[in-house]
């Protein structure tokens, strides 16, 4: 296999990490909507955004690896 094509495949595989981030962010905001629909006075929005940031970061680890594979020679 050409090294160049192996790099492309590797970058694609590294992006699978974003699946988890997507599920996590979806869960966070689903739970936020659930909470606010049941109790509109609940003060949970800051925690939701904290959870969003933490969940997003895990996926970005994978995305950063993909970028490093693709563009760092």
């Amino acid at each position: 296999m050409e090294p160049e094509s192996a790099k492309m495949i590797g970058a694609g595989i590294a992006c699978i990490a974003l699946v988890g981030a997507g599920i996590g962010i979806g869960n966070v905001f689903a739970a936020l909507i659930n909470a606010l629909a049941r109790n509109p006075a609940a003060q949970v929005t800051p925690f939701a955004f904290l959870g969003f940031a933490l969940a997003e970061a895990t996926g970005l680890f994978g995305l950063a690896i993909a970028f490093l594979i693709l563009f760092v020679s």
Binding site: A53, A57, L60, F61, A64
Partner: peptide, 13 residues
């Protein structure tokens, strides 16, 4: 450290 770094790197890239 990686959380902040990866967010900035991925976003700007």
């Amino acid at each position: 450290s990686i959380r902040l770094f990866a967010n900035m790197l991925a976003g700007h890239t």
